[in-house]
Amino acid sequence: MKMYCSNNFRIGCKIIFEKEPCLIESSEFVNPGKGQAFVRVKIRKLLTQQLIDKTFKSTDYLEIADVKEYVLSYLYNDGYFWYFINNNSFEELSVEKKIIGVNKKWLLAQDTCTITLWNNEPIAVMPNNFVNIKVISVEKSLKGNTVNVRNTKLATLITGAIVKVPLFIQTGSLIKIDTRSGQYISRVK
């Protein structure tokens, strides 16, 4: 079992904390004039996305997490599992519906995404930050209704997601979406 000394904590290190894999998001080594040196870190739990502020003594050790990230292509789903393929080795990976979570509305066939594995088990699926998705229906809007405070309408995308779009977007349009916020970015020509 490999260990990290708290003096070696760096941003991006993956550790086991409270029996869960975590990512160190910030680390500050403090050496006060009196007393023992310590390390102040912000840790993100990879399973729950909870952010924790924690202070460790300079003599503390934590286990290195066996966390790996792979960029895989999304193939299809059967309602219970989502299937991905490694384009280099052609190995398939299936991921449960509960792990996909809300990200399922941003997954399109043949798109790549980042899959995080802990002890060779999937724990998270992150789609690309921006995706181009086709609009299959839009809310009706009155022509010339630009004076109204609401200059957007709701659009349903091919994946089932519903987003706010400008009034000029029509059924069949291809639009760019920021998957982190779920917001419309632009129309794709």
Rank of each mutant, 00 (worst) to 15 (best):
32 P>L: 11
40 R>Q: 15
35 G>E: 14
22 C>Y: 00
13 C>Q: 07
43 I>N: 05
32 P>R: 11
32 P>Q: 09
24 I>G: 03
41 V>D: 04
41 V>A: 12
9 F>E: 06
12 G>W: 03
10 R>A: 11
13 C>W: 00
12 G>P: 08
24 I>E: 03
34 K>V: 13
34 K>R: 15
12 G>L: 08
35 G>F: 03
16 I>D: 01
17 F>P: 01
33 G>Y: 05
27 S>K: 12
11 I>H: 03
32 P>S: 13
24 I>V: 04
33 G>M: 12
42 K>S: 14
37 A>N: 15
26 S>G: 08
16 I>S: 07
36 Q>A: 08
24 I>N: 04
23 L>C: 08
22 C>H: 00
14 K>H: 06
28 E>F: 10
16 I>C: 10
13 C>E: 09
42 K>Q: 14
24 I>C: 01
36 Q>L: 04
31 N>S: 15
8 N>H: 11
11 I>K: 15
11 I>C: 12
7 N>L: 11
38 F>T: 02
27 S>A: 15
17 F>T: 02
10 R>L: 03
13 C>T: 06
37 A>M: 07
24 I>T: 00
40 R>Y: 13
28 E>K: 13
30 V>I: 15
38 F>H: 10
37 A>L: 00
25 E>F: 05
39 V>Y: 07
11 I>Y: 01
25 E>R: 12
20 E>G: 05
22 C>D: 01
29 F>Q: 07
12 G>I: 05
38 F>K: 04
42 K>H: 11
33 G>A: 10
41 V>G: 01
43 I>H: 01
36 Q>C: 06
30 V>H: 13
24 I>P: 00
25 E>N: 12
30 V>Y: 12
22 C>K: 00
27 S>Y: 11
37 A>Y: 07
18 E>L: 09
41 V>L: 01
18 E>D: 06
10 R>S: 13
